[in-house]
Amino acid sequence: MVSRFGFRRTDPHTLAGPYALDALGDADRARFERHLGGCPSCAQEARGLREATSQLADTLVSQPPDGMRERVMATAARTRQNPPAILPARAGWRGRAAGRGPRWGIAVACGVLALALVFGGFAWRTEQQLNQMRARSRAIATVLNAPDASMMTVTANTRGTATIVMSHRAGALVFTAARLPALPSSQRYELWLMDHTGAHAAGMLPEPRAGMTAPVIVSGLRSGDKFAVSAEPGAGSSHPTSRMILKVALPS
């Protein structure tokens, strides 16, 4: 690894410490960041070291000057916010199943979920519905932003794939699916959380738009639960009445 990315004489890995401490000059910093782009294990280490250095700030906590809060809040109120950065598409992400580094997966998951939100087409009008939608988006964001969030992609037994982002800390998972077989109008997909006492109804999957379902949040998650999906009549069943099209043990 010594000769990669322009570090011919110096082992780039020794720069991980100075990098995490912002103790590199501009040129070294740029070179090291290029190196990180091609070395996932280095990026992983850099993140851990950065978490450690950031905690050094805990020893520096200091009361800001009087009036700073008001100045910051007032300036923020008239400062335009930047949109999210465009995430680069990753070829082949769908083929990746659980076991891939979850942290890297989240950015992809957000892209997928954002897409599902668009395709899900919320043609809602009333204030109440808008509020419900906002509350749901917040709940979804909480799972996606959870420090312990992990992502997996699962293939259904029938057809199609599902993406699950789960957080034990949030006690919830976010589920979205693509290209599941269309059901007769009398049926819909129902979600289940399963433990040793059996299957517990966990909500209905919305109608897909353009083959994708809008993300749904499933809360009340407990360690050791399995997650499953089946086709059920009408408004849903209290117990599954057909074979699961998808069943996955959630990492505990």
């Binding site: 993140r47 978490e51 950031s54 916010q81 949109p83 999210p84 950065a85 942290r103 989240i106 996606l144």
Partner: peptide, 15 residues
Amino acid sequence: RDAARFDAGRGTPMA
């Protein structure tokens, strides 16, 4: 300004 660009995949919010 950049709250939307915070990426949980790259570390904790505090970091």
